Computed example of a mutant assay.
Amino acid sequence: MPNGVEVVELARVWRGPVMESVHHGVVVVADTGGTLRHAWGSAGWVNTPRSALKPFQAIALVESGAADALGLTDEHIALACASHHAQPFQVALLGDWLGRLGMTEDSLICGPAVPRGAEDIAAAYAHGGPRRVFNNCSGKHCGFLSMAKHMGGGHDYANPDHPAQRLYRDVLSEFTGLDADSLPHGGDGCGLPAIGVPMSAMAKAAARFGVGQAVSERRRAAVRRVANAMAAYPDHIAAKDSPTARMIRYTDGNVLLKGGAEGYLLACVRDRGLGIAIKVADGDASGRAKMGVLARILGRVHALPTEEAELLIAAVEPALTDSNGREIGRVEVVVQRPQPTKPTKASLGFWMSEVPGAGVLELFEDRR
């Protein structure tokens, strides 16, 4: 890996007796204070969580007062966190949301797309083809559009200086302990900014999200509402009975998770105050490996009994099949032993000295 980032082997893909592919990456586990509990690879790797940041954007939606002003339900809040598949129930909910705004989907900045499922794709083309509400990020965009209407600043909510974007960055700064305005950023596929964050900081942010840790009561209440919405409506976050929904249901909402593009996955274990950040280094366009890796890590950190964690791997990493549905291969989750760490209060020096490749963190100022 470039820039001194160290990765470890996370998963192997087998086709019969032949090992066909290997996925490498990084896994970081931290608590709410930022103490590094485990690191597989370089915890300081700065990359873009992309859609894994949507729950933090949803916090801004609730905290701003926009959600209450529109009478949004927890279903809407869950959809704001979603990378949805544009299934009919999700599209209907988006239509309801836009109706509350008194706007059409043309007001959304995300581009037109088609649903994920074959039947839904066929139905979409039978009724006009790609639409903005089919974009997997349209729930997030409805959230930002809601903030734009409520807070003012115009409808160009992609502008980094828009009040909605500034509030979101303030939320992210508090949860990561870093100045989000100083973090590197590029553009996301949906037209909004994509911020680069060290994985260690994202693991800490996830832990804080899981327990609702924030300075103000208003923000704490917003976090609780977002987390509870994700737990109550897991099908909204991706699709009905998706691996994400299965894992949330399997743990009765104790584990909340949100994937991002290019092999990113963020999760929290609410009753243990732990956050987990996973990045598959090759981008994992197929979407495999990261969910099984999370299940294995839940067993390693004793968030689940080992036997349950291994059963969960099978639920979220099903066998590979051919076009006739016959089993032809499998994903084997392989996670190396975690590096030894000290239960020390996290600091910039700690991240840099204890974790290989974490020197990239010297670019940022810790805002705790």
Rank of each mutant, 00 (worst) to 15 (best):
G65K: 04
L93N: 04
K342G: 08
P163L: 11
A281F: 01
R15W: 06
T176R: 08
E262I: 06
T344H: 13
A67N: 11
L61K: 01
A203P: 02
L167A: 08
R326S: 12
K258S: 02
C190L: 06
I121V: 15
W351E: 14
V355R: 02
V280W: 13
V223T: 01
T251M: 08
R131M: 09
E317Y: 03
A158F: 12
V269Y: 08
A86S: 15
L298S: 09
A82W: 00
Q339T: 10
F175Y: 15
G187K: 14
C268F: 09
H23D: 13
V333M: 03
T321Y: 05
K279P: 12
R368N: 03
H162F: 13
M202Q: 11
I195N: 02
V301F: 07
R208P: 05
N135G: 10
I109A: 09
M352H: 12
Q165M: 12
N135W: 08
M147L: 09
V13Q: 06
H38L: 11
L178R: 12
S173T: 13
P49M: 10
V46R: 02
S107R: 15
V301T: 05
A285K: 14
E307N: 09
V355E: 09
D74S: 06
A148R: 04
L72W: 13
E63K: 07
T176N: 11
W14P: 02
S242T: 03
R12L: 12
S83Q: 00
F175P: 05
H155D: 14
A201Y: 02
T341Y: 03
Y168S: 11
V13H: 03
A358M: 11
M247C: 08
Y233G: 00
H84D: 05
R131D: 03
E262Y: 08
L257C: 14
Q57I: 05
H76Y: 04
T344W: 07
V335K: 03
